[in-house]
């Protein structure tokens, strides 16, 4: 039985990393599973290599599409620094699923600032359940480095109720035929990370 609790997934990454498709598939799965779903994100200026955040909330009835501060149950990160940046928005009892990838922001690229060291350890210092995924490695294993987002979804799927078949069905519904098989493989590889 579904209780009244709303579950909150905060997605963080860098503009251009393909968080959009991942959040689309996620919303589709959750809707098909019978939940009320809301998702909020920002397009436009932030797309240009900037820090991007998506909010996905689901439950029996969801009001605000934005996750109340400190109430994210899952922080779903596509890049280490961007994941770490949004840590204050996560519940202390939350879970982190993070892609083991470092993309230098401008000040680091210019040699003016240093990229923070050992982010997984810093996350583990405050959150018990931190799952680090070698997204690019698994995506290459699946056959296409551009399927990192689907790999990450696979790992995230372990935390959520819908069954594997429901996820695969949503991927089939949203991914173009040409890239379908590699995405299905990527999802399965990601799901093996626990």
């Amino acid at each position: 039985m579904m209780n009244d609790k709303v579950t909150n997934i905060l997605m963080a990454g860098v503009g251009g990393q393909g968080t959009l498709l991942a959040s689309e598939i996620l919303s589709e799965v959750l809707m098909q599973a019978g939940y009320d779903v809301k998702k909020a994100e920002v397009h436009g200026m932030a797309q240009r290599g900037g820090s991007v955040v998506s909010h996905v909330r689901f439950g029996k009835k969801v009001y605000s599409a934005i996750i109340p501060e400190g109430d994210a149950d899952v922080l779903f990160g596509f890049e280490l620094l961007e994941t770490y940046r949004y840590l204050p928005l996560v519940s202390p009892r939350g879970t982190v699923v993070v892609n083991n990838l470092r993309i230098a922001p401008p000040s680091v690229a210019l040699g003016q600032e240093a990229y923070p060291q050992d982010i997984p350890a810093k996350l583990r210092g405050q959150i018990d359940d931190v799952r680090v995924v070698d997204g690019l490695q698994l995506a290459e294993k699946a056959g296409n480095p551009r399927t990192v987002n689907t790999v990450l979804l696979g790992t995230l799927s372990n935390l959520l109720e819908p069954a594997e078949e429901q996820w695969l069905a949503a991927i089939k519904a949203l991914v173009p035929e040409k890239f379908l098989q590699v995405n299905l493989d990527a999802f399965k590889l990601g799901r093996m990370v626990k």
Binding site: V14, G15, M45, A46, Q47, R48, G49, G50, S51, L81, E82, Y84, R85, P105, P106, S107, V108, E113, A114, Y115, P116
Partner: peptide, 9 residues
């Protein structure tokens, strides 16, 4: 933390 503003591609 180092900020990540948008940038030209």
């Amino acid at each position: 933390l180092p900020p990540r503003p948008p940038n030209m591609c």
